[in-house]
């Protein structure tokens, strides 16, 4: 990879008196799966949410495909078209059916005709194993099913990168696997993914790279093999001991 897809350069963020990100610099390459780990309050979700500007940064720069991430409405719109996001709480639109959830943005943002958007959506729903539920409303689905629809919804905009903000944290244990399986399949297809998670097994198996955040700093940036097998940092070892299962 010659040119990183996303560059984060000395980014700072404070909430009130709390300094949640301190001079964070890193980059994300196209086709790479990055897992961001860290204890609660370490700034990992904030960093992720800055990448599509659901959170603003106080100083520093974020570049996606050499476009500055900022408040300019036109570049913000194109940024968000290129960056898909999956949320902890799914955030499906409850008043719309599964199919309408997936087709809404392509129809409104790209002006895709309804028939074409439906065809594309059914293809994506099939990919996440939800095509049989296309005409249900979200309330009728389990958490795992809702999250798979949410992934299909984000993919419908054909993003260059997918952000996952603790995608399995709100799920019952028996539903975690079905969501992780979809994410694995997505990773194998070459999608650029940045994932905040506590699923260590998934991180070890699927990721190309692990970032560990602590109190707003990137403490480690390693391959999963190095991070999990040869961990020399006592604090991270303690963290891994606590979350391992």
């Amino acid at each position: 990879m010659t040119q990183p897809l996303i560059r984060v350069d000395r980014v700072n963020k404070t909430f009130g008196t709390q300094h949640v990100l301190r001079d964070v610099s890193t980059h994300f390459n196209a086709g790479e799966v990055t897992v961001i780990l860290g204890s609660s309050g370490s700034g990992k979700s904030t960093l992720l949410r800055m990448l599509n500007r659901l959170e603003t940064h106080d100083s520093g720069r974020i570049l996606l495909d050499n476009q500055e991430v900022g408040d300019d409405p036109r570049s913000l719109a194109s940024l968000r078209r290129d960056v898909g996001m999956v949320f902890q709480q799914f955030n499906l639109f409850p008043h719309l059916t599964v199919l309408e959830n997936v087709t809404l943005a392509p129809r409104r943002v790209h002006g895709t005709p309804r028939a074409a958007a439906n065809a594309k959506a059914m293809e994506l729903l099939k990919r996440v194993g939800m095509d049989a539920h296309a005409h249900k409303h979200p309330f009728a689905l389990s958490g795992g099913q809702q999250q798979r629809v949410a992934i299909a919804r984000a993919l419908a905009m054909e993003p260059k990168v997918m952000l996952f903000d603790e995608p399995t944290s709100a799920l019952d244990p028996e539903m975690v696997k079905e969501v992780l399986d979809v994410m694995k399949q997505l990773a194998r297809s070459g999608m650029t993914m940045i994932i905040v998670t506590h699923e260590m097994g998934f991180a070890r198996e699927v990721s190309d790279r692990v970032l560990f955040l602590h109190q707003g700093d990137i403490v480690q940036d390693r391959s999963p093999a190095e991070f999990f097998e040869q961990q020399d940092n006592p604090r991270i070892r303690a963290f891994l001991g606590q979350v391992a299962h």
Binding site: L54, R80, R81, G84, N91, A105, A150, M157
Partner: peptide, 8 residues
């Protein structure tokens, strides 16, 4: 947030 993240 979901709608915005979809570029709407």
């Amino acid at each position: 947030e979901a709608a915005k993240s979809l570029g709407m």
